[in-house]
């Protein structure tokens, strides 16, 4: 992994929730145009770390993040940086599909609207269509854009949410267990989508499913009890891990 290829550089990040330390000195480089998977047992800090990358931890009372997080060489863990600007660059998809209780169109158009990305309504229509196409949802919803987003099925909702994230043209997309609430078929579609999106975005995905990590990611990082135990190319982690803990977790001996 060369320096020039990495999108996100994290150095010595500690996260505290009140007095409790949730992450201990995590350092990792996340490459561009690839999928990086965070795996680990529940409560290991992988979601916490994910939320550091777009400063969503700011919204949690008593959360404190220390250390250096750089995106394209720019420090983002800086109180003077407006998280609003950062979050336009770093999109996020949550565990449970959470479309706004508005129409499908408005769901996708919301981001471009608040960031002023479209000059005209035609342009906005275009952004919405492109985003829905990229999320593989256009064919299914093109004739009912005015229907409420909440009327879609779970898998469709999750793709709608991905389209919503894509619509503001982010550089990084964070996904926090995006398939945990979906059935295997919907999961397969999302995984296929993630694979396509990799060409244009840097994707970070938190997952509980080792198979999913193996299927979609090029890089894998294993977290345990707030420590980043090991990270590297997915193939290496799954076939030839350096650490015993990683081996045990992958083999299903704990977690």
């Amino acid at each position: 992994m060369s320096e020039t290829n990495s999108k996100v550089e994290v150095r010595d990040v500690d996260v505290f929730y009140g007095d409790k330390q949730a992450l201990n000195s995590v350092s990792i480089d996340i490459p561009k145009n690839s999928v990086t998977a965070f795996i680990g047992p529940s409560g290991c800090g992988k979601s916490t770390f994910l939320r550091c990358l777009n400063r969503m931890n700011d919204t949690i009372e008593g959360a404190r993040v220390e250390g250096s997080i750089k995106i394209d060489g720019e420090e983002i863990n800086d109180k003077h940086l407006d998280p609003v600007i950062l979050r336009a660059r770093v999109g996020m998809v949550f565990q449970k599909p959470n479309p706004f209780p508005k129409s499908i169109y408005d769901n996708v158009a919301y981001g471009p609207r608040i960031h002023g990305l479209a000059q005209s309504s035609d342009e906005l229509d275009d952004i919405v269509e492109q985003s829905l196409r990229k999320a593989g949802l256009w064919e299914e919803v093109s004739d009912r854009l005015s229907h409420p987003g909440t009327s879609l099925s779970g898998g469709q909702q999750q793709r709608l949410v991905i389209a919503r994230a894509i619509a503001v043209n982010p550089e990084v997309i964070l996904m926090d267990e995006p398939c945990s609430a979906l059935d295997p078929i919907a999961t397969a579609r999302i995984e296929g989508l993630i694979d396509e999106l990799r060409e244009n975005y840097c994707i970070v995905i938190v997952t509980h499913s080792m198979q999913q990590a193996a299927r979609v990611s090029q890089q894998t990082a294993f977290f345990h009890l707030g420590d980043l135990v090991e990270h590297g190319p997915t193939e290496t982690i799954f076939t030839n891990p350096r650490e015993q803990k990683t081996q045990d977790y992958i083999m299903g001996r704990f977690g």
Partner: peptide
């Protein structure tokens, strides 16, 4: 979360 995550 959804709104904040999209940069609102």
């Amino acid at each position: 979360d959804a709104a904040l995550g999209i940069g609102a």
